[in-house]
Simulated scan of single mutants.
Amino acid sequence: MRRFRGYTTGIRALVYDRNAAIVSSAYTDFPVYHPSQDRVEQDASEIWSAGLAMIQKALAGAQLQPEDVTAIGITNQRATTVMWNRDTGEPISRAIVWQDTRTSDRAAELLPEWGEKAYSRPGWSLAPIYSSLSIEWILDNVEGAREEAQAGKLAFGTVDSWLIYKLTGGRVHAISASNATVAGCYDLLADEWYEEFLTALDIPMSLFPR
């Protein structure tokens, strides 16, 4: 993915050979939405569709079939929050991009009690970039989301989780360790999701990828 003016605005697929030489590539832009001044959103379905199309185009350019690929790597915007329904595989809202600031007031509200603890465990200063605060916002503002989350019907992930989920036909719900840390709710000392903080936000642990 390419960064432009602080946002991720496009998807590039590359095919490498075993010597790391680029055999083929494909690129396309996709939109960023700004419903209000403090909001930056993207459509996770558009990310997937564009990604799949570019994979297909890059493979065609290299005259390869999917089974010819030995390994896949994903580089992505990191703290962007995607939530989807486990049964349908469809997002329940637009993805909240890492530069979105709608949770600024909530971060300030939590800071006196959680500022030091959050920094000492996830290793990030408590701020709107926390995916956990975006999750809380979605659960509180998307109709029926909290009830579905409590019933174990929803999944959360950053963009890598979303793409892995789609690429595996919904069989794998996972996240890279690096991306997990920027979610603001991963306990680096215990090497697990920061359950104490998530419980305080009333966020079910069932949402989270391995």
Results as ranks from 00 to 15, higher is better:
Ala127Gly: 07
Ala21Met: 07
Pro66Glu: 09
Lys117Asp: 00
Ser45Lys: 14
Ile175Thr: 14
Gly10Arg: 11
Gln150Val: 03
Asn141Ile: 02
Gly169Lys: 05
Leu163Pro: 04
Pro35Phe: 10
Gly6Pro: 05
Leu198Asp: 01
Ala95Leu: 06
Asp43Gly: 09
Gly115Ala: 03
Leu133Gln: 00
Gly184Lys: 09
Asp29Thr: 08
Leu59Lys: 05
Ala79Trp: 08
Leu154Asn: 07
Phe30Asn: 06
Gly89Tyr: 03
Lys153Ser: 07
Thr80Val: 08
Val15Leu: 13
Trp84Glu: 10
Ala26Phe: 09
Met205Ile: 10
Glu109Pro: 04
Trp124His: 14
Phe208Asn: 04
Thr103Val: 08
Trp193Thr: 05
Tyr186Ala: 02
Trp114Pro: 00
Leu163Cys: 06
Ser25Gln: 15
Ile92Asn: 08
Asp38Val: 07
Thr80Ser: 13
Gly123Glu: 04
Glu109Lys: 02
Thr28His: 15
Ile129Asp: 10
Asp105Ile: 05
Ala60Gln: 13
Ala107Thr: 02
Ser131Arg: 04
Ala180Asn: 02
Val40Met: 15
Ala95Ile: 03
Cys185Ile: 01
Ala190Gln: 13
Pro66Trp: 11
Asp191Met: 04
Ala20Arg: 12
Thr158Arg: 03
Glu46Phe: 10
Met83Leu: 14
Trp162Leu: 05
Thr28Ala: 15
Leu52Met: 11
Ala108Thr: 07
Val40Arg: 13
Glu196Ile: 00
Glu192Ser: 11
Phe156Ile: 05
Pro112Ala: 00
Ile22Ala: 10
Lys166Phe: 00
Ile11Pro: 10
Gly6Arg: 02
Leu163Tyr: 03
His173Trp: 07
Asn19Asp: 14
Asn76Cys: 04
Gly157Ala: 08
Leu52Lys: 15
Gly184Asp: 00
Arg39Val: 04
